[in-house]
Simulated scan of single mutants.
Amino acid sequence: MRKLVLSAVLVTASLFGLPATAAEFQAGKEYVELKNPVPVAEPGKIEVVELFWYGCPHCYQFEPVLNPWIEQLPEDVDFKRIPAMFGGVWNVHGQMFLALESMGVEQKVHDAVFNAYHREGNKLDTPEKMAEFLAGQGVDSDAFLKAYKSFGVKGRAEQAKKLAMAYQITGVPVMIVNGKYRFDIGSAGGPQRALEVADFLIEKERAAQ
């Protein structure tokens, strides 16, 4: 069932809608307003979350559009990536991301992990395969395996699952602004317009503060 839902999201994600001004973005159309807002990690800042999976082709294609946008975000915006963990290899990859993040090396190898899966055919579906690959990226394999199996990372994995449920996501990539608004590439009308929706909602939250 998850695969069917994800497939529907990925199909719509490839569509690019007609241009629209920010004033035309509407709840129930380009984005959904959550009935039960989710508390943000850092009160006082506007939180933007991307939920993703390393095996998702549209997450991979979104990266070159998303990354330059992240780099120019103002100081009052707190951007976070959270792995979607729907079971199986999703959980394995999510735990890898969280282990790398706990080690402080996730940003260094994030693109390389995506490329390994989508360009090199390395599915990275076991901790041992991950450690071997990451060693080639300058990450200590023993330290990675220790972090991957740690109580702290497993606890953060459970927290990520709970957040995904609270956000009511059914596929990826999905973005959440300030724990209140959810949208994906398909509903927004394409990758670039998704970021325009994000900018619109960031400004909406900034004006409300």
Rank of each mutant, 00 (worst) to 15 (best):
L124M: 11
G121H: 09
C56R: 06
P127D: 09
N115F: 09
P74D: 03
L134C: 06
G136R: 04
E120I: 10
P68N: 15
V92I: 14
V77S: 14
D76Y: 11
Y54H: 06
D78L: 11
A27G: 07
L134W: 00
N115Q: 15
L51R: 05
E47K: 02
E33V: 14
S141A: 15
G55L: 07
S102G: 06
G94P: 12
D140R: 09
N115D: 14
P43R: 10
V77G: 10
V40E: 10
E71R: 13
K108V: 06
G121M: 11
V89K: 10
Y117R: 12
I46R: 09
E71Y: 02
K45C: 03
D78F: 12
H110R: 15
N36W: 04
D76H: 13
V65I: 13
K129F: 07
P57A: 10
D142K: 15
G55M: 02
Q107N: 14
L51N: 00
E47V: 00
L98E: 11
N91V: 09
A116L: 05
F151P: 00
V113D: 00
Y54D: 03
F79H: 10
H93N: 08
E33H: 09
P57D: 14
A147D: 01
P83F: 07
K45H: 06
V38S: 10
N91R: 12
A147V: 01
P37T: 01
A116E: 04
E24P: 01
T21F: 07
Q26G: 02
L134A: 00
Y60V: 01
C56Y: 08
M85H: 02
A112E: 15
G17N: 06
I82V: 15
G28S: 12
W90R: 00
S150T: 08
I82R: 13
M85Q: 14
T126Y: 13
P37R: 01
A143T: 13
I82A: 11
E42H: 09
V48D: 00
C56E: 04
P68T: 15
F86T: 10
L100W: 04
F52E: 01
Q95S: 04
G94M: 08
N67L: 10
L98R: 14
V109K: 03
R119Q: 13
P43W: 08
I82T: 14
S102V: 04
G104H: 08
Q26R: 13
Y148P: 00
I46Y: 07
M130Y: 03
P68V: 13
A23D: 11
E50H: 06
Y31Q: 02
Q107C: 05
E63V: 10
L34R: 08
P39E: 08
E128R: 08
V89L: 13
W69C: 12
